[in-house]
Design a protein around this nucleic acid. Structure first.
Length: 121
DNA sequence: GCAATGACGCTCT
DNA sequence: CAGAGCGCCATTG
């Protein structure tokens, strides 16, 4: 295919978004999450081939954009709750979108992972 | 190149 | 069950 340039443009800005392979890998896994299902950061990291790099998953998602078409809303922490983001308001948005997909939140505002956790198999 | 940060996870209290 | 602390490592400044 297209022979990428040197690794120099690895962390370029939005213009030439040369995302590292790990990021692309994470995006792929996130896209695999079916509607009405949720996955944890650690789970995504593990499936993406980055066991223990749950944080980088969150980082990758934060660096992602709407044009990436990533259902970041389906990614929650191990507690089954939406991670508190830097900007307020998104928590409610994420929850609203998940509820619109059929995901049920309990009184504590958490998801029953035993029920809605996505299983690749 | 070094230092601090971060959409997290796990264990212990 | 809830809260706090420590650890993991890539990305950013």
């Amino acid at each position: 295919m297209t022979p990428k340039n040197s690794a120099s443009e690895r962390s370029q800005s939005d213009s030439t978004r040369r995302l590292s392979e790990n990021y692309l890998r994470i995006y792929e896994v996130v896209r695999r999450v079916p509607e009405g299902r949720v996955a944890t950061y650690g789970q995504v990291a593990a499936i993406a081939g980055l066991p223990g790099h749950a944080r980088q998953v969150g980082y990758a998602l934060h660096a992602s954009r709407p044009e990436d078409d990533l259902p970041w809303q389906r990614i929650v922490n191990a507690k089954g709750e939406v991670s508190p983001r830097s900007e307020p308001g998104y928590e409610g948005l994420q929850r609203a979108m998940l509820e619109a997909e059929g995901v049920i939140f309990n009184t504590a505002g958490r998801i029953d992972l035993k029920r809605f956790r996505w299983q690749e198999a």
